[in-house]
Design a protein around this nucleic acid. Structure first.
Length: 885
RNA sequence: GGGCGGGUAGCUCAGGUGGCUAGAGCGACAGCCUUACAAGCUGUAGGUCACAGGUUCAAGUCCUGUCCCGCCUACCA
């Protein structure tokens, strides 16, 4: 008896094979090789993080590509690694510290970083082991971490290089400031969220007049930092006030009334309070009019001394309340109206960001973006789906300087030193020895780099840059980058820019941007929404292969791919189906072992063998094309349909039938087809395919001995011949079987009951084919009591009938047949036939169609109509017979 | 305000350059433990392809407009 259990149990099998693969270093890429290179760098997950559904999809697809190319004989490198993920990771640590009753500031920089490394060391293996559970065939010997020595050197090297090209500079500018994280962030990290706020209308009295100006603001507390009121120069209502001064309520400060085009006369009251230190637009107005920039917030988002004695120390929100109260008490508040508007939130911590003026380091990305655009236009990088290209261009064309310094500790410290004597700035790889002024006393910049800076170097820093390594020569530019469309700007764009800047070459040839996993309702899965599937739990319940197959199945080009539980169940059922097909074949192979090639005689190829080979070839072709075009859902669907509905539903039934007649050859072919299917399926379902593949017969009678070590390095199947004639013949046989089954089903013939089948086949050639094949095949699918095939034969009384073109199939059902049911059945078929005939006739009656449509289309239509007319006529005749009898 | 994606069976989705009688999975219904598989087998039902025009011999597919849904993006305080 075979060792395969009745149901597929993934647990043991999965851990067994992953170890085997690793021990044999199948995933290791050669730094140089005769094989063509194929490389993917992993989007590095957070070192302290755990596998979420987005990772699962992303890495499954990458693994599919990598395994597929490896089998195709490429020298494949899947470069793995992790990211230090600056701000998020620090935030989590800070939460931990708070629980311990301490804080980052209490610990101090050195101790804090020590803790971070400790935590990193503790958790580093976690995410890696999860990726391995998922089956990822990464080259783990090359694993990298963004804070590694090598990668840190890459960061410093690129920084110095960019600085020397005057692309990195320091500037005082308005940036988005997170009061929670106490750092500047880039505008990409700011997520605008629509919130229900208010419009506060406030009176600003104009000095030396009785006039009051009414301004409207959503942030009344910022008035404490107002240094002007602006109106549009053409606004008749306010023109006469330009040049006068307004009295700022609560502050007793006189501020100028200025004219600026920026002001929209139709919005609000048309009078704009100007807070140059706390609003991007006001900042620019301030620069134009040389206004004072009055900062009223502290870095942690409360009011500073300049907000005035009444407000100092209050939080932004408490201050707002108090300002509104005070305005009301002093009769400056006109009204408060509800107003919905977008407010920027820090995407890492959710805090409302504060535009603030600060001294930061910037990377001038404009020239880099220009190069990236040109390279893309030249086709050096291709985006899939193509629509992403326009999103990429749009962002690149409107790009702004990137603030790269972060007032944090966990990350790459800026390689910038300030002389303690003369203030001179030195940017070098390591601490400078001495300053121009002769001093040897320096201090390094306190800030670290935006995490995305080091991620931007990932495709080459992981391969040893700035050294000129063999890996870089072999694998750069990499082949594909696979990630979600949501980080096109964050990461992909930066990699392209930095790749061009540092390597003079784009980092990858193709960018495949997949959708984001959504729940059954189409909502993006996320931990915060609580609608997320836990990949590890899913793997535990369904098995990795089932999960991976489900993920591949949903990978259509739409932006949000729904992953309902049922999809994963479907994956599991499929795995089980695969398992049982293999089980069936192997059980029978024990009884009918495959002879070696020498022992084997010339076997005649029965129709079904020719058919399955042709279908397999077709499947290989479709699957390969789909893989080449990143159509993973099509790969999954094609393999599912072939394996289940052609191989299992039909071919194995044929093979069974042959076995009853002691004809094992089709079974041997089944083993061969299964073996090839395992290879086709391997990129999607690595574990079960390895298990089955290993159990299939190997050796002289089957495969080359040097590739039979593992399916991971077995060749990906290539299409052979396809045989349309055989396929057509088989299709007609199948159609007859389908019709007989349908009649039995609809007329409630019990499973066990045998029926006679009479077939009228006027065409000689068709008749002889049917005589050959039906005898062989029919018993495999339905119980028959004898088959009669003739050029013309009478319809037996009390028989059911099916019509296929000029064929008529009669099944005598004396005593069983329900005449009414049969009449209903035929009537329905007839109605459909009439409908189809009418539609075909309409087309063919149109002279323009005959004239202008391609010949083959016209011919096809004619054939169709002919066939439909015959069917219609036959059905009519049968119906009239039925009603008259 | 711009731009993109979507609206096809009860649900979730396929339907590259227009051309066989519009498909799949899941679900529903009916019947089956037919010794590979009940995570299975067999059969059945279910669609005026969002709407309105247009181009064409031919439109789910191309064009225009409209209506919904989602997303990206923008300095309207």
């Amino acid at each position: 008896m075979t060792s395969l259990p009745k149901s597929y149990d993934p647990k043991e099998i999965e851990s067994k094979w992953y170890k085997f693969w690793q021990q044999n270093a199948f995933f290791h890429a050669e730094a140089s090789s005769d094989k063509p290179p194929y490389a993917i760098v992993i989007p590095p997950p957070n070192i302290t993080g755990s596998l979420h559904i987005g990772h699962a999809l992303d890495n499954t697809l990458q693994d599919c590509l990598i395994r597929w190319r490896r089998m195709q004989g490429y020298n494949t490198l899947w470069m793995p690694g992790t990211d230090h993920a600056g701000i998020v990771t620090e935030l989590i640590m800070e939460r931990k510290l708070a629980e311990e009753g301490t804080s980052r500031n209490e610990l101090g920089r050195e101790k804090f970083i020590e803790r971070m490394w400790q935590w990193k060391d503790e958790s580093a293996g976690y995410i890696v082991s999860q990726l391995q559970k998922l089956g990822c065939s990464c080259d783990w010997e090359r694993e990298r971490f963004t804070l590694d020595e090598g990668l840190s050197k890459a960061v410093r090297t690129s920084f110095v290089k960019l600085y020397n090209h005057v692309l990195i500079y320091r500037d005082t500018y308005m940036v988005n400031w997170c009061p929670m994280c106490n750092t500047a962030v880039s505008n990409l990290e700011v997520e605008p969220v629509e919130i229900d706020g208010h419009f506060y209308h406030i009176h600003y009295p104009v000095i030396d007049t009785d006039i009051v100006l009414e301004i409207a603001t959503t942030r009344p507390e910022t008035m404490l930092g107002d240094t002007a009121v602006a109106v549009h120069p053409d606004d008749k209502r306010y023109q006469h006030l330009i040049g006068k001064k307004a009295l700022l309520p609560l502050c007793d400060r006189e501020i100028p009334i200025i004219a600026d085009d920026y002001v929209d006369t139709d919005f609000g009251t048309g009078a704009l309070k100007v807070t140059p230190a706390h609003d991007m637009n006001d900042y620019e107005i301030g620069l134009r009019h040389n206004l004072e920039q009055l900062t009223i917030f502290t870095p942690d988002g409360s009011m500073n001394q300049d907000a005035g004695d009444n407000y100092v120390g209050l939080s932004r929100w408490d201050c707002r309340k108090k300002v509104v109260e005070d305005l009301e008490n002093e009769n400056y508040l006109v009204k408060i109206v509800p107003h919905r508007h977008a407010v920027g939130h820090h995407d890492r911590c959710g805090t409302i960001v504060e535009p603030a003026i600060s001294l930061q380091w910037f990377l001038n990305v404009r020239p880099l973006a220009q190069r990236a655009i040109e390279a893309t236009k030249k086709g050096e990088v291709k985006f899939i789906p193509e629509r992403e290209t326009s999103r990429f261009f749009h962002w690149m064309e409107n790009i702004e300087p990137w603030p790269i310094s972060r007032q944090r500790w966990w990350g790459h410290r800026l390689p910038i030193w300030y002389c303690n004597s003369c203030e001179k700035v030195t940017v070098t790889m390591d601490t400078p020895d001495r300053c121009e002024c002769g001093s040897t006393d320096f201090h390094q910049d306190e800030d670290v780099l935006d995490t995305w800076f080091s991620s931007g170097l990932w495709p080459f820093s992981t391969m040893g840059w700035p050294q000129e390594t063999e890996e870089l020569k072999t694998f750069y530019p990499t082949s594909v980058l696979v990630t979600g469309w949501d980080i096109l700007f964050f990461w992909v764009a930066r990699m392209i820019m930095l790749g061009l800047a540092c390597m003079d070459e784009v980092p990858f040839r193709t960018v495949y941007l997949h959708g984001l996993v959504a729940d059954g309702k189409g909502q993006k899965m996320s931990k915060s929404k609580g609608n997320s599937i836990d990949p590890l739990e899913t793997i535990e319940t369904y098995g990795t292969d089932a999960f991976r197959f489900a993920l591949a199945s949903i990978s259509t080009p739409i932006p949000y791919v729904p992953l309902p539980e049922a999809q994963i169940e479907s994956g599991r059922r499929f795995a089980n189906k695969v398992w049982n097909a293999a089980r069936f074949i192997m059980m029978n192979l024990e009884k009918h072992p495959i002879p070696t090639i020498d022992e084997r005689g010339e076997e005649p190829e029965p129709l079904e063998v020719q058919w399955i080979k042709s279908r397999l070839s077709h499947t290989i072709q479709t699957t390969t094309d789909a893989m080449e075009n990143f159509r993973f859902y099509e790969v999954a669907q094609t393999l599912y349909a072939f394996l289940w509905h052609e191989f299992c539903d039909w071919y194995l039934e044929f093979a069974k039938q042959r076995l009853t007649k002691a004809e094992p050859y089709p079974l041997w072919v089944a083993a061969d087809v299964l073996e090839q299917m395992m290879r086709l399926l391997h990129p999607l379902m690595p574990f079960i395919t390895e298990e089955i593949w290993q159990q299939l017969p190997h050796g002289a009678n089957k495969f080359d001995s040097d590739v039979n070590v593992s399916i991971t390095i077995a060749p990906y199947p290539k299409p052979t011949t396809q045989n349309p004639t055989v396929e057509a013949t088989m299709a007609s046989v199948m159609e007859i079987i389908d019709n007989i089954r349908s009649i039995r089903g609809e007329l409630n013939v019990p499973m066990g009951a045998s029926v006679e089948v009479h077939i009228q086949a006027p065409n000689t050639e068709v008749r002889s084919r049917l005589e050959t094949y039906l005898e062989q095949y029919l018993p495999a699918f339905t119980r028959v009591d004898g088959i009669t095939i003739a050029e013309s034969l009478p319809k037996p009384s009390n028989s059911a009938e099916a019509v296929i073109g000029d064929l008529a199939i009669y099944i005598p059902l004396a005593g069983v047949i329900d005449l009414e049911a049969e009449q209903a059945r035929l009537t329905k078929r007839h109605q459909q036939a009439v409908k189809d005939v009418t539609s075909a006739q309409k087309t063919l009656e149109n002279p323009n169609f005959i004239e202008r449509a391609p010949e083959n289309v016209v011919a096809q239509k004619r054939e169709l109509l002919e066939r439909l007319l015959i069917e219609q006529e036959k059905l009519e005749r049968s119906l009239s017979m039925l009603t008259s009898s």
